[in-house]
């Protein structure tokens, strides 16, 4: 049953050295505040799982906390490279397990469905199966078609950012919902940060994406916790920061100084100001 905690306590109670962790959010609702808390606490030897590692994993990898990255597209969207990730891979210091988006999405879904592997039609005529031994195949027992398989993603911990929790600890997501529901349901434990905690979700679509309280381990309220990504209806994506990150991350020393000033010497409360800065006009 979901327990309301401070972000510090939620991460400390749920993430340990050596864990596999999926901090999901497909461009939208990326859990930056929670990721920064992981950096401050310094958990080590993490296996980081994310379809699009984005700046948050560039930061965690750059701080030396990851031993392995499981991913399907490792770039700064619309800008270029994730320089910290790229440097570690090119230097051979970071193990990788690389997939396509379709494979990762299917693997999260298989994890949520409590299946051992995902089956889909893909990876035809390409080189990734030659370098990733986890990409295999199965023959359809009905048609004889050979289909691609990948192991289900079953992280120790899922970390996501959502719009709201109610007082019972149910969690609401809207907008681009990515694979967050699947990530939480596929994981042993989960930490959810939210923009706000409300008495009642109020009027909503009966098909809104809701994670019931009994599927979530810990909830922490962190307004602005997805900045520089965004929260639908709350604040916009800080595209200027994504562009600026290219310069910050390119040089290790500049990166470390930025991390010292903006993450290590900071805390979750700093995110609220960013939410106000990029606030969506009330409508």
């Amino acid at each position: 049953m979901a327990e309301f905690m401070s972000l510090r306590d939620a991460i400390a109670a749920n993430l340990r050295d050596g864990d596999s962790v999926a901090m999901e959010g497909f461009t939208h609702l990326i859990p930056y505040a929670a990721g920064h808390e992981v950096i401050r606490q310094g958990q080590k030897d993490l296996t980081l799982i994310r379809m699009t590692p984005d700046i948050i994993y560039d930061q965690i990898v750059g701080m030396g906390q990851a031993k392995k990255l499981v991913f399907s597209w490792a770039g700064n969207p619309g800008v270029g490279s994730l320089h910290r990730v790229r440097e570690e891979i090119e230097a051979g210091r970071l193990a990788i397990e690389e997939h396509s988006h379709a494979a990762m999405a299917n693997a999260f879904e298989a994890g949520a469905a409590n299946l051992p592997f995902a089956v889909f039609r893909g990876y035809k005529g390409v080189d990734l199966p030659k370098v990733n031994p986890n990409i295999r195949s199965v023959t359809c027992p009905y048609t004889g078609e050979v289909l691609a398989t990948v192991p289900a993603v079953r992280p120790d911990v899922a970390i996501i950012h959502a719009l709201k929790a109610d007082r019972e600890g149910n969690v609401l997501l809207e907008g681009i919902v990515g694979v967050q529901k699947e990530a939480v349901l596929a994981s042993r434990r989960s930490v959810v940060t939210v923009e706000e905690i409300v008495a009642d979700f109020g009027p909503r679509s009966t098909n809104a994406v809701i994670l019931p309280a009994w599927t979530v381990t810990a909830i922490a309220k962190v307004p602005g916790g997805a900045h520089p990504s965004y929260a639908q209806g709350y604040y916009k994506r800080d595209n200027a920061f994504y562009i600026a990150w290219d310069k910050i991350a390119r040089d290790k020393a500049v990166f470390l100084k930025w991390m010292e000033e903006n993450v290590l010497a900071s805390g979750p409360d700093s995110f609220a100001a960013q939410a106000r800065r990029f606030a969506v006009a009330a409508g």
């Binding site: 699009t52 991913f71 490792a74 490279s81 994730l82 891979i89 988006h101 990734l128």
Partner: peptide
């Protein structure tokens, strides 16, 4: 090291 395939293979 380039970003990778993303959605492209499928």
């Amino acid at each position: 090291r380039l970003p990778g395939g993303g959605g492209a293979p499928e």
